[in-house]
Amino acid sequence: MSLSNILDNLSRFRQDAESERYGHHDYEHRFGMAIDLDICIGCNACSTACYAENNLPVVGKDYFEQGQAMHWMRIERYWDDEELEHPERGASFIPMMCQQCGAATCEPVCPVAATYHTPDGLNAQVYNRCIGSRYCSNNCPFRVRYFNFWSFYESSWPEPLNQQLNPDLSVRDKGVMEKCTFCIQRIRVAKDSAAREERNMIDGDVITACAQACPTNAIVFGDTMDPTSQVSLAWKKHEVKRGPYTHKEAKSDEEIRGYRVFDELNVDPSVMYLERVRDSEV
């Protein structure tokens, strides 16, 4: 059993390594996102929805200040230099969550393979397998992996708040790494119902909690392998492609705003952002 297991894995590994395609998976889907920062108003609704959907513990002020918060979806704020000619009014912000990288840096370093790539193009995190070495988080340039430093569940949902926990996924105890899953429980449900109805998944079958909650529809979620999906169209329109970073390819039009965060690190993120149009540019 075990030997054949090793040999199977080895031959698959060789196949992957020798294939010329970038990335080495036989994907069924590749879920991705497009986030328009110009529409985003930084209201944190996505973050709140994420807390509700994914049983994220509210850690409280003290732990938050220690940097131990569990916000899978966070709104990062940046302030412009005051000395700029046209400094931004207020903060610039960017919703940041796990980018479900195609060549994820977190995956090869996990000693027990608790994080791996699914055929859906997601970085899955297997809570039960995780031993908490935290190497994945150390190797994540986006710093979007969150570790259960304490048994947060003990205090986060006092009775009767525990009644509002989402039954579709677990509540995590201390010592386990977790991160944005692109609402994998919703993807599962959509896949199952599509299978029951004996059809393929279509665009709109799945919508993540953050995309659903966004009041301005800044977040578009879908399968980037489906050429007709909204997200594919957006990627195409803004000339962002899967695969390795090629910064030499200039965009056909300066108005095109698509980019991926830390693309130059060659991690192949699945989230495309659209640059904010600044006051000075209008």
Binding site: A69, Y146, F147
Partner: peptide
């Protein structure tokens, strides 16, 4: 109590 007591953070 967990690794939070070490003061580690994100």
């Amino acid at each position: 109590y967990g690794l939070g007591s070490v003061g580690l953070n994100n």
